[in-house]
Design a protein around this nucleic acid. Structure first.
Lengths: 231, 231
DNA sequence: GGGGCTCTTTGTTCTTGATCAAACTTGGGA
DNA sequence: TCCCAAGTTTGATCAAGAACAAAGAGCCCC
């Protein structure tokens, strides 16, 4: 438990400005944990007792409506903080976090947040920058949902995924975690049927290539064009 | 300029915990300004050199797409901070702020943000609570847009407005600033035509009563029912 | 190596709400 | 007082995408 290597945090933005000794202190307070694919890390409404740093894997942040519809709010990639309800004055988690693939995360008790902010220079700044980026992303999604058609929204969602978690493969860029048409529909507010038809169409035009749970973008440029097609 | 009364800030959340002397200091740094209806306070992309506190009136926060569509992100009511790009590590404003009616606001240079946070206990906590609330609202809107029909979205938008800025009048609750069908459509991602038809329908059913730029909700309960109608 | 679960595809029909098109109303300003 | 701009209503048509319905395909586990 106590032998986490300091190199883990050296390159992670919120901790980048900390000294070796400070990182040691932070790590000594951290609890590492592994999650299997589809494991729930915390659920919407739960008491927000810990905050997390994802070291490896991908996390999906989900909200569920009373009607049972799921909406994917965002994906977290390695190196990002999540579950930081404490940072924005919340006592419960606003959404559910689920491991997409095998994940490794560190966590700390939420009541440590305050002391991190005051003890470690740069920690607050970097963390709130993350908050700002997420707000920006959310804002963009609202604008998209309000003004764009389904095809453009799905195109953007795919582009965002390859930007955040794209892996170069021969013939294009692959989303490097498993994702279904259903998932994509939950990110864009449409149905899996419509997403399936869109992907089939794009595949016919040589823009993407996809198999079960995997998507490779072969012509990102044309996807960008699609995503911008007149409002 | 220097004779702002301290009572202005005593009941405003971010400053609530400050001493009389501290409030004096804060006020001495503040620049008050009045804005006419429809005046732009700052625009998306502008250098975020100041942050604001709205003392009176209503502000509309707007994003405009390349295609010229406008989306209303949120409304700010008296007592709220806005333009707090500095708080989330941004150097430009992420959206445009426009006065809806006659407004009075205080503003401070953005570089004072850091010193406010460190000098005044409770300021950071309260401010980030506001950030958290806005994130929650944005999140809800994303979920709504993804899962609900237009009628439900418009109903919710109206309910939100009367919650935030409702004024009791005989016969119901009125949204206490001027708002057009067009505005409502920009809040919900639909067209003014559809909003007009919905409002006409509701009026026929005795749920609302509206004239040019004014909306009175006469039966909030039934509006809630409408807004929840099966996903 | 088969069974079953999960994911995907594809066809058809139907509904919502956008788009197009005008006319009407209201209130402020010349 | 009249005019005009801004805001509102209403009708008709149309298209995007949801809903309904099945059938296929890939993968994991036994």
């Amino acid at each position: 438990m106590k032998n986490l290597d300091e190199s883990l945090l050296v390159h992670v933005p919120p901790f980048r400005k900390l000294s070796r000794a400070q990182i040691r202190d932070v790590l000594d307070l951290a609890v590492p944990k592994r999650f299997d694919p589809a494991a729930l890390i915390f659920e919407e409404g739960m008491d927000a007792d810990r905050f997390y740093l994802l070291l490896d894997g991908h996390i999906r942040v989900i909200r569920t409506t009373e009607g049972g519809d799921q909406v994917i709010a965002l994906h977290i990639v390695a190196g990002q903080l999540f579950g930081i309800a404490a940072a924005i004055g919340r006592t419960t988690y606003p959404a559910t976090a689920m491991a997409v693939d095998e994940c490794l995360a560190l966590s700390w008790p939420s009541d440590k947040w305050q002391s991190f902010v005051s003890s470690y220079d740069g920690f607050a700044t970097e963390s709130y920058k993350v908050v700002g980026e997420r707000m920006g992303e959310m804002n963009n999604r609202i604008v998209e949902m309000a003004t764009q058609h389904v095809e453009q929204r799905v195109a953007r969602a795919v582009l965002r995924l390859i930007n955040q978690s794209g892996k170069k493969v021969e013939g294009g860029i692959e989303i490097d975690f498993p994702i279904t048409r259903q998932n994509l529909s939950e990110m864009t507010g449409t149905t899996l049927h419509t997403v399936s038809r869109l992907l089939s169409g794009w595949e016919k035009n040589g823009i993407v290539k996809s198999t079960r749970r995997r998507i490779v973008v072969t012509d990102a440029h044309r996807l960008v064009v699609l995503s911008e097609k007149s409002a």
